[in-house]
Design a protein around this nucleic acid. Structure first.
Lengths: 229, 229
DNA sequence: TGAAACTGTGTCCGACGGACACAGTAATGT
DNA sequence: ACATTACTGTGTCCGTCGGACACAGTTTCA
């Protein structure tokens, strides 16, 4: 698994030249996932996009889980380059870049659940994020934990606001808020605080991302300045 | 779907009495998921635990997705009761209670991805959380967004530290950190900040949960006190 | 010029979710 | 009382999935 993700495979000396590449397979799979969701990615379907049969893919990938891992790291890509900035701005743009990645490939929300092997691109994202906090005075664990909070928040908001195409869970946001307000109006006495909060909540456009980020960064800043003294 | 979750089904007048209950089915499914992971929950398997056939379940549940939804809300349960406390402590114990829920049923991390219909228990959790911020001076949207940040962080940490039984993604934490340190020692120059951070990171026991929570709550407190002036 | 190693293919399997028709059962209307 | 109606649980069947395996064709090395 790790070998696959990190491209550690010595090319064999004998035998016919491979007609496909792992990269090409993963790209085909990514195209399917982007268009129709991760559930639409089956070995048959991927092979169908390429002029090969299903079983030929297994010469490049041990199984579907590994294919998804390769897809994931490839789709994540490298984080965009930015000029050097103070840690807070750097972290904020890092988070917005990450959100843009989820926006481009919503199925990443599904393929990155649970503990899994990390690929080079994903590790580069982490490195870039930690880099922003390198001179902050926080120790390594605190830097990693801070980054986890931010990445987790980006995930949360992406999960709330993005529509996964084709997924069985693909409920429209209007649909879900519609049933929510319906239930809440019918049983307002059962969820009084929630009903009140939803009542005074304006049509919150994606301000949830910014709001949470600012809170988190405020909290981190508080710790950093406290450390500096 | 919503009808199922909220128990809105009028009992039919004619015909044989149902031999099962939706609740019983969901409990059997939860037991399987707890022991062997969510992937082990198939209609066949659930029916096998009960003295009935697979197709009999479809008299109670339209499909597997709905079964998972019912399982999810049931396993989430109601949030524990706590005496009234200031908002910050209330939110913190709310978060710890939520984490305990994920600990008890790790598959909830998988079954609660993406937008989906919310059940009564889950809504009660939300209500309880918002309740803590009711008198804080934040408006409804801010209360909901704050809660989302906290819940998202709990999810993130749970995802990092909990092992999903039976899952294909079930890699051990030691295993994953082992390959991580192996890769980082081999290519330290490629991920300098990350390598440095991991170097100075002590064996971070689940302090990630507390750390992030404190940062987030600090950030929220900052906003609240700023509002109060 | 074999022999060895590798590629792509075809066939087969078990498990999955689910459609559908069927027999049995309980309440209803006449 | 009895037929009708509505419901329950069952058995059979289908398409799709991931994947094991044997096989034929192709390239390279001894």
């Amino acid at each position: 698994m790790t070998d696959l993700l990190w491209g550690r495979q010595q090319p064999p000396s004998r035998g016919p030249k491979p007609a496909m590449t792992l990269d090409g397979i993963a790209r085909a799979a990514i195209a399917i996932a982007d268009a129709e969701g991760l559930d639409a990615v089956s070995m048959q379907r991927v092979a169908g996009e390429l002029p090969f049969t299903k079983m030929a893919l297994y010469r490049y990938v041990p199984g579907k889980a590994e294919l998804v891992a390769v897809m994931t790291d490839l789709a994540m890509g490298l984080p965009p380059e930015h000029p050097e900035r103070p840690w807070r701005e750097a972290l904020k743009t890092w988070a917005l870049d990450l959100y843009a990645g989820f926006e481009m490939h919503p199925w990443l929300l599904l393929s990155t659940v649970g503990r899994r092997a990390l690929g080079p691109n994903e590790l580069t994202w982490m490195d870039r994020g930690v880099q922003a906090l390198a001179g902050s005075g926080l120790n390594g664990g605190e830097q990693l934990d801070s980054l986890a909070v931010i990445a987790g928040h980006v995930r949360t908001i992406a999960q709330q606001s993005l529509t996964l195409p084709g997924g069985t869970t693909g409920t429209t946001e209007e649909d879900i808020t519609a049933t929510l307000t319906e239930v809440l109006s019918a049983q307002a006495e059962r969820f009084p605080s929630l009903a009140a909060a939803l009542g005074t909540a304006a049509g919150s456009e994606n301000q949830g991302l910014e709001f949470g980020l600012d809170r988190i960064l405020d909290g981190i800043e508080l710790l950093i300045t406290a450390r500096k003294d």
